[in-house]
Design a protein around this nucleic acid. Structure first.
Length: 695
DNA sequence: GAGCACTGC
């Protein structure tokens, strides 16, 4: 126990003290520009909520960009759009747009605003997310949408001309869509000086956001024309209604964070008053282990007068398991939720008073040289740590126990994480920008520029798919069609090719299944799942197996019982149906015919190959353990044991994606004929020997 | 015979 924090000896800290170089803004209609940055020592200027309305309206009136830093519970998300509408920004048919990075947030914020305004959702106030458009083109004045949907809208209306104000919420999360959107909005401002931007961000990112939108060249030019509009972004901070969270740190670094988690939870349980505990760990494995360890400890140890309910939380859980998390704790019981990052932003739990933060999460990293994405356990950022701690202060003052030292937090932890843009494969982003007429991808003004290698790799992949031509322009019609389909470009290419081969009906089903996480239910006893899979298994591989599952699902009349019996995730299948319908709609709009090949496997293989030829692999000659080599990079890879082709090991395969652990595993695999490769991508494979006995 | 942080169009 001694290596961990000791309540009572470790120093408590208030949540507010964490930020260095906090900013303030103090403006009034009479004083024109009196804002700047304050150091930690100087007095903080925060606006109480009641003064908020006039200030925000003043700033939006006088500045082309306003950065707003609102604490949790400040009401910025729901209030600002209403203020803007009252002030006339939605007059004359103009619309106020507000983006969120998540669908659920869009829905709930829109519903709250409609309620506060006393109007029916879908009329004056509406929202748009994928598969769901609850707006009225004539009457909607305030529109909530995901940032991805706004990006899609730009393909038809690049200047977003119907919007007078665009508010980008949760900008500090720096999702790929948010970053692309911010870059494009900065460009739009140049063409539309009257457009107002409001960027809502966490304190820690506000300064860099302001710097990004501060465009000196443009300032000189515009201030000459109209000296009323300030180009330098204003920053406004507003108080929230969250409760203080007291911080505790370990005195010595922790060597085993699972063990530390268990003793911390037990110690809170014995010494602290009632209130639920939320623990942040990295993944399913750690979480299941921790749940087991704590449950065992709790059984051996009855010191406390009340009991504990220990629950895991990660996205792979079924709906009914997740429901347990949200039901209130029974009287006299303390709930302990052991969670992945899902509880950091995506889900909000009520009743949490104590947070235990391991300081780690799983993060995606992309290597443009090998073109492989890896999932790695890595230290979190201060911004994340602060978000995690904030989860303890929602209902009353809370406590946060950090399983790292205070010195580590202050001096070693990075202030914000690496933006997703710099950790991902860029194929989808590059084609999106190309479709919006951004020709110079390498010169694009990104909020955080990805590495040139990643951008070049993205361009290469698109070129090899025939989506970009020699001048790196979108080809017609294939390039434009691929850009229109809301999918990974390799899947889109497969669909477009399927039209020519007359198998689009089947390929669109496969595309829909590939774009949901997994259609199988993950269960502990794997044998039953394997047996269930055998009922659908096709000797050609997983893609054809998906067709069999989908066919069975339709035959059962889309029955949830049938899914349950066959270890198939009913909610995933419902999503497959939705995606499928959308893909059919878009395909028809693009002039593709929806035709069935009556399960002619040979043409299905050709279509898959047309999109995924770059993922072709050959079984090593004389291999006894199923070693494959990728044709492109001679990477050593193996068929994942979850594939129906596991241990079948056909000579030639194409995979959909790679999972990297100690080995590289191919997930979702189909067997092919090598002649298909040269046929599908002569430019790609002409120079390479396809015969294993050659060389 | 092994493993899937989390979003989104």
């Amino acid at each position: 126990m001694s290596q961990f924090w000791k309540p009572g000896t470790a120093k408590p800290r208030l949540l507010d003290d964490e930020e260095g170089g906090v900013l303030f803004y103090s403006a009034s209609p009479s004083s024109s520009s009196t804002y700047g940055f304050a150091s930690l020592e100087s007095q903080r200027h925060r606006l109480p909520v009641f003064k908020y309305r006039t200030q925000i309206l003043y700033l939006v009136e006088t500045h082309s960009t306003t950065i707003i830093v609102g604490e949790t519970g400040s009401g910025k998300t729901t209030q600002i759009p209403q203020y803007l509408k009252e002030a006339g920004w939605a007059d004359g048919g103009r619309i106020i747009a507000c983006t969120q990075p998540r669908r659920l947030a869009v829905q709930s914020v829109a519903a709250r605003v409609a309620e506060e305004m006393g109007v029916k959702l879908g009329e004056e106030v509406g929202y748009t997310i994928r598969f769901e458009d609850v707006t009225n083109s004539e009457f909607t004045r305030i529109k909530f949408l995901t940032d991805g949907v706004l990006l899609r809208e730009m393909m038809d209306d690049p200047l977003l001309s119907k919007y007078s104000v665009i508010m980008v919420d949760e900008a500090h999360e720096r999702s790929v869509s948010t970053d692309i959107l911010l870059g494009l909005l900065k460009k739009i401002q140049r063409r539309r000086p009257e457009l107002r931007l409001i960027i809502a961000s966490a304190t820690i990112e506000a300064k860099s956001m302001a710097e990004f939108f501060h465009n000196r060249k443009r300032r000189a030019q515009l201030e000459g024309e109209d000296n009323k509009l300030q180009i330098e972004p204003a920053i406004l901070s507003v108080e929230g209604r969250g409760y203080n969270v007291e911080m505790f740190y370990v005195e010595e670094p922790v060597s085993d964070y699972l063990q530390a988690t268990v003793s911390t939870v037990m110690s809170i349980h014995h010494k602290e008053p009632m209130g639920d505990i939320l623990v942040f760990l990295t993944g399913q494995d750690d979480i299941d282990t921790a749940v087991q360890m704590i449950t065992e400890e709790a059984q051996n140890n009855t010191k406390s007068s009340f009991g504990m309910i220990v629950l895991p939380l990660y996205s792979g859980l079924t709906r009914s398991d997740q429901d347990l998390i949200f039901s209130p704790s029974p009287r006299g019981k303390r709930k302990v939720v052991i969670s992945t990052n899902i509880a950091e932003t995506s889900l909000t739990l009520e009743g949490i008073v104590y947070v235990v933060d391991s300081g780690f999460s799983k993060q995606r990293f992309y290597n443009p040289i090998t073109d492989i994405e890896n999932l790695v356990v890595a230290p979190i950022s201060k911004a994340s740590a602060r978000q995690r701690a904030g989860r303890a202060g929602r209902i009353r003052p809370g406590k946060c126990y950090r399983l790292y030292t205070e010195d580590y937090f202050i001096n070693k932890m990075s202030s914000h994480g690496i933006p997703e843009m710099q950790r991902s494969n860029l194929v989808s982003s590059v084609i999106q920008l190309k479709a919006l007429g951004i020709d110079n991808i390498l010169g694009f003004d990104w909020p955080a520029s990805p590495s040139p290698e990643s951008m070049v790799r993205g361009l290469e992949v698109l070129y090899s798919l025939g989506v970009l031509d020699d001048d790196a322009k979108l080809t017609s019609p294939v390039g434009f069609q691929v850009a229109e389909l809301p999918l990974d470009p390799m899947i889109s290419k497969m669909i477009i090719e399927s039209d020519k081969l007359g198998c689009s009906e089947e390929i669109i089903t496969i595309a829909a299944v590939l774009s949901v996480q997994s259609i199988w239910i993950s269960v502990k006893g794997q044998r039953e799942l394997d047996e269930a899979k055998l009922r659908f298994a096709a000797s050609e591989g997983d893609h054809v197996t998906f067709l069999n599952v989908y066919g069975g699902f339709l035959k059962s009349n889309k029955s949830s019982k049938w899914c349950h019996k066959n270890f198939i995730n009913y909610h995933a299948m419902k999503k497959v149906m939705e995606v499928r319908q959308q893909l059919i709609r878009v395909s028809q709009r693009l002039g593709l015919a929806i035709k069935s090949c009556q399960n002619d496997i040979q043409v299905l293989r050709k279509a898959v190959t047309a999109g995924f030829f770059a993922n072709a692999c050959r079984l090593e000659p004389y291999s006894h353990n199923g070693t494959y080599k990728t044709l492109r990079g001679s990477q050593e890879v193996y068929i994942h044991p979850s594939s129906v082709l596991f241990r079948v090991n056909p000579k030639w395969v194409i995979y959909h994606s790679l999972v990297s652990t100690d080995r590289q595993y191919m997930r979702n695999v189909i067997s092919i004929e090598p002649s298909c490769l040269r046929e599908a991508a002569p430019h790609f494979y002409n120079q390479q020997p396809l015969n294993p006995t050659h060389q």
